[in-house]
């Protein structure tokens, strides 16, 4: 009886070995993770100032973060140099160019979700004749000439208007921040509400 039990048990062990090894071997694969479509990644922002009186006077300033999440420093490639006493319309080209073969226009996404986004601006005090002051970072109610509104009638900022001062100036600053404010955007929400999608500072000259 005892011997019989032992034989039986050896078989059990053998069976168990086979079963578990088979299970583990069948699981091996060498697949890489599937390709993911990165959302919300912005690697390049261009500010495009177009002179309302002269369509050939286009000033473009671009900032690029070529590696997205990587540690490479942000590159602010251009200074903004505007003509004195002129009115410009500012529009933006916002791109995800992580995969050069498949560049995505994030501006379209922002337009689709314009009730969740707002651009805020901060600049050297009185460098513009209109809007005057230093922008709406410190107080969301301060003057900025938004040309667009969302479905709720709140400003967005994909298009804005700027009139430079008659006096020339160099080495000023121009800062743009895009805030993502899902479910919280109102006429009063400011630069510190929600999450930041980008926050860039350029050198501003008027000549």
């Amino acid at each position: 009886m005892k011997t019989f039990n032992q034989i039986l048990n050896f078989r059990l062990i053998a069976l168990l070995f086979v079963a578990v090894f088979a299970a583990s071997c069948s699981n091996d694969d060498d697949a890489a993770p599937e390709e993911e479509n990165e959302v919300e990644v912005i690697t390049s922002v261009s500010l495009i100032f177009t002179n309302n009186a002269d369509a050939t006077d286009v000033v473009t300033a671009t900032a690029v973060d070529p590696d997205g999440e990587g540690i490479q420093e942000l590159q602010v490639n251009d200074e903004i140099t505007l003509t004195a006493d002129a009115t410009y319309t500012l529009t933006m080209a916002i791109l995800n160019a992580l995969d050069p073969a498949d560049v995505e226009d994030i501006g379209e996404e922002i337009l689709e979700e314009d009730d969740e986004h707002q651009f805020f601006f901060s600049f050297t005090t009185d460098v513009f004749a209109d809007p005057a002051g230093n922008g709406n970072f410190d107080d969301a109610a301060d003057a900025i000439n938004y040309n667009d509104t969302d479905d709720n009638g709140n400003p967005v900022g994909l298009s804005t208007s700027w009139t430079t001062n008659a006096a020339a100036s160099t080495g000023g600053s121009f800062r743009v921040r895009l805030q993502h404010q899902p479910d919280i955007k109102t006429a009063d929400t400011g630069v510190n509400d929600g999450d930041t999608d980008f926050d860039l500072t350029f050198v501003l000259n008027v000549q």
Binding site: D28, D29, E36, E38
Partner: peptide, 21 residues
Amino acid sequence: FNQNNDNNPGTLTTPFIPNYN
């Protein structure tokens, strides 16, 4: 000892940890 780590697709972001065996 045998270990198999797999990322499931659909996170809409590049995996923080790779797949490995």
